[in-house]
Design a binder for these strands. Sequence first.
DNA 1: TATGAATGAGGGTTCATTCAT
DNA 2: GATGAATGAACCCTCATTCAT
Lengths: 204, 204, 204, 204
Amino acid sequence: MAIAGRTKQEVVSEYRCAEILSAARTVFATKGFADATVDDIAAAAGIAKGTIYLYFSSKRDIYLAALKQGLTELQERTRVSMAAATGIRAKLRAFVRTRLEYAETNRDFIRIYHSEFGNLTNAAACHGEFQQLYLKQAKTLETVLQNSVTTGELPSLRVDFAAFFIYDMVKGVMMQRLLEWSTGTMEEDIELLSQLMWKGLGAL
Amino acid sequence: MAIAGRTKQEVVSEYRCAEILSAARTVFATKGFADATVDDIAAAAGIAKGTIYLYFSSKRDIYLAALKQGLTELQERTRVSMAAATGIRAKLRAFVRTRLEYAETNRDFIRIYHSEFGNLTNAAACHGEFQQLYLKQAKTLETVLQNSVTTGELPSLRVDFAAFFIYDMVKGVMMQRLLEWSTGTMEEDIELLSQLMWKGLGAL
Amino acid sequence: MAIAGRTKQEVVSEYRCAEILSAARTVFATKGFADATVDDIAAAAGIAKGTIYLYFSSKRDIYLAALKQGLTELQERTRVSMAAATGIRAKLRAFVRTRLEYAETNRDFIRIYHSEFGNLTNAAACHGEFQQLYLKQAKTLETVLQNSVTTGELPSLRVDFAAFFIYDMVKGVMMQRLLEWSTGTMEEDIELLSQLMWKGLGAL
Amino acid sequence: MAIAGRTKQEVVSEYRCAEILSAARTVFATKGFADATVDDIAAAAGIAKGTIYLYFSSKRDIYLAALKQGLTELQERTRVSMAAATGIRAKLRAFVRTRLEYAETNRDFIRIYHSEFGNLTNAAACHGEFQQLYLKQAKTLETVLQNSVTTGELPSLRVDFAAFFIYDMVKGVMMQRLLEWSTGTMEEDIELLSQLMWKGLGAL
DNA sequence: TATGAATGAGGGTTCATTCAT
DNA sequence: GATGAATGAACCCTCATTCAT
C-alpha cells in the first residue's frame, strides 16, 4: 500500500534514525564524544540500547551521522542564501547571517561542530576525515571569492587564506554567542562581522 | 646541603615533573586526551606508571598542568613582546608574530591548545575551567586595546569583540600552518594577518 | 478438507520444520553451535527470524532436533542393513559400510555429530542428554554382539568394551574422511576397517 | 639477587600463569569454551578479572595455552615412556599406559582435549590450528611405526591409517573411563586395548 | 622515592527471545 | 501463521588508580 517511497517501513525507520540522531546530538554536545555512552543516547532517545545498533553500526557511526547531517543542512542553507544574494558583499553578509542564525537554533549541533572543526589537528580520531570535510567547505567559499576576483568585483587576493579567514571568523562569533559572551544582539554581531570581513578582505 | 630553595628534593622533583609534562604533551598532542593512556605517558617519559601519581593526582591533572604550563609561557612571551613594541599597531604585530613563532616551535602544545580552545562549549570536560583561562587571555588583550582607545590611538570600538576576533584569527592561522595548509611563508602570513587585523579593527 | 492425518496445517508445518532443520544443519556444521546465530539459520532457511520460534522453542532446541533427526535416520539405516546381513562378520561390515556411506552424503550432519559425540564430557551443554543418546546407540550394537556370543558365533568377550570400540573406530574414520586426511578410497577404508575390527575383536 | 633465571619477577609471574591456567582448565572443562566466562576463570583463580589480561591477551589465548600446556606434557611423557620401551609391542603398550594414566590424573585437561580433538571439523573455531596439532601428534607415532616396518619388526601396513587408529582407540577409552562407563580396572583396560591394537595392526 | 602488578568499574557490542502488526 | 523491529542481559576487554614491596 505504498504511496510515496515505501512508506511505513521507510518512514518509521527514518523516524527512528532521526530520533536517535537528535538524542545523540544532545548527548554528544553535552558530554563530548569520549564521555558520552551509548546508554546515554539510548536513554535520551527513550529506546533500548540494542535498538540503536539496528540503525547505526557503532558509536562513532552515530557521531559521524549526526555531524554530517547538520553539516549538510548548514552547507545547503548557506549555499541557497548566498546564491540568492547579488554581489559578493551581499553574498558574504548572507553567509554570515545564515550561519549565525543556524547556530542560534541548532546549538547542540554547533557544539559538536566546534568539537571537530576547532581541533583538526588530532590525528587519532579519524585520519583526515574531518579535515577533508572542512576543506570541502572552504573550497566552496573559495570558488565564490575567486569568481568575484575574476569578474573584477574583488581585487586580486589570496582566496585560500581569505576563505579560511572567513570561516574562522564566523566560527569564533558562533562560539562567543553560544557561550553568551557576546554583548551584542544577533543583528549587531552580523553587522559587525560583515563589516569586519569586508574591510579585512581589502587587506589581503 | 641546601643551596637555594630546598635543593635536590625540589630540583629532582621539578625535573621529573617537567619530564612527565613533556612526555604528556607529545602523547596528548598525538592521541588526544581521551585516547591517551597513562601508560603511554609513562612509557614516553621512560618512568613507571606509578611514579606519575607521585607528581600528579590524575590523568586530567597532568593534562591541565601541561596546558597551563604552555599557556603561561605563551602569555608571558606575548606580554613581553607587546610591552616592548611601541604603538598599538606594532603591539598587534608583535602579538601575531610571537604567537605564530611560538606555535612553530611548540607544535605539541599547540595541538593541545586547539583541542581545548577550539571547543570551549563542551561542558563535560571541566565546568568553565578552560573558559576562564580563555577569558583571562582575552581580557589582557582587551585592556591593551582599551588603553589605545583611551589615548585616542584607536577610535572607539567594541573592544571585547575585537579581542576575541584577534584571538580567533591568530588561532585560525596557527591551525592552518600546523596542518600545512597555508601556502605562504611565516613572514607572509604574519604580514597578511597583521594587515587584515588592522583593517578589520577599523570596521568595529 | 483433511485427507490423511490433518493435512495442510500439518504438512506445511512439517515442511517448514524440515526447511529450518536443513538450514540449521548447514549453519551449525559450518560455525558450531556457539558461533551460529539464529539469524544465520533464518537467513539460510529464507524465512524470518521470528518464524523459527513458531516451530522451535530455542536455538538449542533446533540443534537438538537437527541432531536427533540425523541420528535417527543413521541408526535406522544401520539397523536395516545389519538386519539384512547374515552372520556377525557380515553384519559388522554392513555397520561400517552404512555409516561411512551415510557420512559421505550427510557431511553437515556428521560435523554436528562429531561436535557432540567427540566430546561427551562437557557437562555444560546438556546434562547427560547426549550421553544417553550415545549409550542407546552402543547398547543396540552390544545386543547384536551379545547374541553372537550366545549362539557361539563369537567367543566370550567384553561386549560393552567392544561396542564402544567399534563405534569409536568408525567415528575416527568418518572424521579422517571428512577432513580428507584418508589416503584410501571409500571401499579400501571399509575393507581395512572391517578387517581391523574383526581381528581386534579376537583380542577381546 | 637473582639465583637462577631471574627469580621473583619470573617466578611469581610463572606462578600466576600456572594458577590462571589451572583455574581455566577447570572452568573450560566444566562449561566448555563458549559458556565459560573470563569472570568464571578469575573467580576460580581467586584474582581480579583485569589481572588475567596481564598474563593472557584474550580468552582464546588462555584456552590455547591451557590446551598446549597439557598437550606438550602429554606428548613429552608419551615420548619418554615409549623411548624407554624396547620393541614396538612394548612401545605401544607404553603409549597406551602413559596416556590412560595421564588422563586419570588430569581429567580437566582431558575434557578440553576431547572438546577439540573430538571435533576437528568445525572450521569456525580456529582455521586448522588444532588440526595441525593433531596431525603433529599422529606424525610422531607414524614415524615410530614406520621405523618398525623398516626394521622388519612390523609387516608393511598403512602407517598413516594405523596412527590415527591408535590415537582414536586410546582417545575413546579415555573418554569411557572419564565418564565412568568402563566396567574394568585401569590395568584391564590397558591390557585389553594393547591386545586389541596389536591384533588390529595385523589387519592393516 | 620508584615500581609495576593488581584491581574492578565501566562501556561498546552481540544476539536469543519477544511481541505488536 | 509470518514478520522483523525492539529488547536488555550478558560478556570481553580497557585502563585509571592503588598499594605492597
